[in-house]
């Protein structure tokens, strides 16, 4: 649990993973408002195939990491903290708020940034609004049911 320093060498891999992601998001059209509409209208398999196969590949890999006790490249243990259920309210209610925003903007947080790179600069406004929404949650948090 040592504090890792943010050197260029440490951050560079994440920059590369991000670039890789931005290209895949763009080329698979998951950043398209039309594709999100097509998904919520159940009119094509495209988005379900992408999310489903991404989960499958991730799930198999995570199981291997857990069962074999594989460590990170720096030798540290890989901790995957379980999510706390609580009353469950935050998951269905927060999730519903998120889903409303996802269908309206046609983008979740990652794709919003990929869209800016694609030249849809108006998505910067959506990102600022999302920061404002996050801030509002932080302020209201003690009063919200979780």
């Amino acid at each position: 649990m040592s504090e890792s320093k943010n050197t260029i060498g440490r951050l560079l891999p994440y920059l590369l993973v991000g670039i890789y992601f931005g290209i895949i998001f763009t080329k698979s059209e998951v950043i398209s408002w039309y594709r999100i509409q097509e998904m919520f209208r159940f009119q094509a398999f495209h988005m379900y195939g992408i999310i489903g196969s991404a989960i499958a590949v991730a799930a198999i890999s995570v199981q291997i990491i857990k069962r074999k006790g594989i460590r990170a490249m720096d030798g540290s243990e890989i901790n995957i903290p379980p999510k706390v259920m609580g009353s469950g309210t935050r998951y269905w209610l927060g999730g519903t708020f998120f889903g409303l925003g996802w269908a309206l903007t046609g983008a979740c947080p990652g794709p919003m940034f990929a869209l800016v790179g694609n030249g849809a600069l108006v998505m910067l406004i959506a990102i600022l609004s999302a920061v404002a929404g996050t801030y509002t949650y932080g302020v209201l948090r003690p009063k919200l049911p979780h």
């Binding site: 935050r90 708020f97 925003g101 979740c108 919003m112 998505m123 929404g133």
Partner: peptide, 25 residues
């Protein structure tokens, strides 16, 4: 669609404790 939608994405993601990447994947 842009301002309210974006706000709901940010509010909902943090309330739910994650978004498409954190929860769905």
């Amino acid at each position: 669609m842009i301002v309210l939608g974006g706000f709901l994405v940010g509010f909902g993601a943090r309330y739910a404790g994650g978004c498409t990447s954190g929860h769905a994947i």
